[in-house]
Nucleic acid binder design. Structure first.
Lengths: 145, 145
DNA sequence: AATAATAAGTCAATATGGTTGACCTATTAT
DNA sequence: ATAATAGGTCAACCATATTGACTTATTATT
């Protein structure tokens, strides 16, 4: 029986993280490049799409970047009419962010590539394996500390 | 039964990739920062450690960056006596890279943190789940196209 | 009504991690 | 002698991030 916690096995797992992430982002990166956009634009589109009406500071918390780092890309997305910012009705200091129809369309293209990659990987394995993958990834997500 | 290939499930998997990778790199980043080094230094140390005696161009191929991007960090590591470059005996144009004792030590500290993260995640699941995780990650690694 | 707090926007300076292009040396192969 | 290969380096550029300092608009507090 193979020791799955040996240094060799753990090192190969580290490499899998590195190469899988690289493979995972490379497709969308190409589409973004054609539009003159970067990965951060994608993440912004993604999280706004996922959570319509979220505020700037909520978005900052999710992305874990400074507001200065967000400022330029977000402004650009708004200028390109991919994202709309609407003042909250109750508290007009808050800006509620949402995707325009066009923004929604682009986000679907970008995320669609990644969804297809994941779906392809999932197609080849059992449902229980998918649950196992998710379980481990979830564990790794919570080691930000 | 849950449809594991639904848009919602695939989107949550995309987020797992993003957050897991972030959690995975954050620990080592802190140690690197204290030494005035970056993630690329770590990757260089890692791949030299993994493959003692590999050449510059082999390293470039693995990292998939330009030689100009590698130049400064590698020179720095050599100046810090963490990495040694020795001309190949048969073809003295080739430089064989290897870690010094000190470089090996630092690499073990950096990678050790990531190994512990992975080991912790693996400890909580069955061996078959680890194999499943590895299988899926391996599939995602090969979608660089 | 005055003041403090909050949400957001923006300028500047700086750092890291990349890119491409151009050109160099040393060594080996033809 | 010449061409090819491996590597090194300068310069200009770009993306993505940081911290600090400051502004405006709006809401909450006293």
């Amino acid at each position: 029986m193979v020791d799955l916690l040996s240094e060799k096995e753990l090192r190969s797992s580290i490499e899998l993280m590195y190469f899988a992430y690289r493979g995972f982002t490379s497709h969308a990166d190409k589409t973004l490049e054609q539009k003159g956009l970067g990965r951060l634009h994608h993440r912004v589109l993604y999280f706004i799409g996922r959570n319509h009406g979220l505020t700037i500071s909520e978005l900052l918390k999710i992305l874990a970047i400074s507001k200065q780092a967000l400022n330029a890309p977000l402004r650009q997305l708004i200028e390109m009419k991919l994202v709309e910012a609407v003042a909250d009705n109750n508290d007009r200091r808050l800006k509620r962010l949402q995707l325009s129809e066009e923004g929604n369309h682009l986000e679907k293209i970008l995320t669609g590539k990644q969804m297809r990659q994941i779906a392809d990987a999932f197609k080849n394995v059992e449902n229980s394996d998918i649950a196992a993958w998710r379980n481990i990834m979830n564990y790794l997500s919570n080691t930000n500390s």
